[in-house]
Nucleic acid binder design. Structure first.
Lengths: 192, 192
DNA sequence: GCATGATTTGGACAATTGTCCTAATCATGC
DNA sequence: GCATGATTAGGACAATTGTCCAAATCATGC
């Protein structure tokens, strides 16, 4: 296999295992077995565990940007774009109930480990926050744009967190409906 | 030292280390060193790591009940009781920014580990949810009590989660103010 | 002050961890 | 078809993990 594709394959599998089992609990051996390569070959691509983590965070940053760009391309109205974000909770509710939000749980774990890459992981939140802020700004919310963006982000995180603990999928549906109602209320308040 | 107090001391230190560094990342050795006992003595009290985790969850459940009872004793009005819960976020904002919410992060980690005790840990959320529900019921919110209780809980979780990632203490203050405003809005809606 | 059980000690244990190395195998250009 | 560099394999390594044990020390009742 070409080097680039092997490398890509390792990152993809590490990404998935980090999400499902956590960063610390996932070993070199776990990734190597799942990627069907030897541990020695693994070392050829990544010298340390932090290097893989770094690559995984890079991948998530890239994929997040792609997803956000996709929503902008597909939905012309800012409201529909924000709704697309909120409904991620519904689309991913099975994995969320099993393993939580990929962003939130990684940030939480790295905070506990006091890991050097915790700020980089938090950048994924930064992407969402900035993008949501832009959407609210496009809706006409100038001063409140940042605040509302963080609010939507925090709300989603809370829903994911509680859904993981309580294993309640209906709760996600209800909260998503509430967030949407809140959003429309904000939008309505702008035209006054 | 008496056996009961040694045991209690171990649990107390394990509780703190689990919170600050996570369950998996905290080793028997870490706890033993911090508790100033030998690893052998540790084994005298707890045969497996799951046993300590179980004891720590028990302690957290007990302390949560005590805290909730305390709020009920100190504040006669349900609104003030709920506000006391919300303001936990402010009182504990330094540790929250460093290590997240003790309940949410433990539940998230145990979910990833697919740990047998994950339901027991989620019971701590259950205590808060049930207590908040009772307060809303006392305010006159019958049908909505459960929904509002879970909403407050999720909101708090989201604030903690984002504050940990962004290391933003002011964000906590703003969101706590928003939750309080929301609460008063709900209360006002009940008297109509 | 002796006997008994509770408590503590220090280390053994097999397994697993992240890291690192050497030798083999592969692909490619000439 | 040979030489060269990229890729892979397999295992060594010291450290750490959770678990477990036998022997020593302690406290207490008689």
């Amino acid at each position: 296999m070409a080097a680039a594709s092997t490398r890509h394959n390792i990152i993809e599998i590490a990404d998935d295992l980090f999400y499902r089992g956590g960063f610390e609990a996932t070993s070199f051996a776990d990734i190597a077995v799942k990627a069907s390569i030897s541990r020695g070959n693994f070392y050829y691509y990544f010298k340390t565990k932090d290097e893989i983590l770094n690559a995984v965070i890079d991948r998530r940053l890239r994929r997040t940007r792609t997803m956000l760009d996709g929503w902008e391309a597909q939905a012309p109205k800012p409201r529909e774009r924000i709704v697309a974000f909120i409904e991620l909770l519904i689309a991913n509710r099975a994995p969320i109930m099993a393993h939580g939000c990929p962003v939130g749980t990684l940030c939480a774990e790295l905070a506990k480990l006091d890991h050097v890459h915790q700020e980089r992981a938090a950048e994924i939140f930064g992407l969402f926050a900035h993008w949501l802020e832009e959407q609210f700004r496009a809706l006409g919310a100038d001063e409140a744009a940042r605040e509302w963006a963080l609010h939507v982000l925090a709300w989603s995180q809370g829903v994911a967190s509680l859904a993981t603990a309580l294993k309640d999928g209906d709760f996600i549906r209800r909260e998503v409906a509430d967030i949407t109602t809140w959003l429309d209320g904000r939008i309505a308040s702008l035209s006054n």
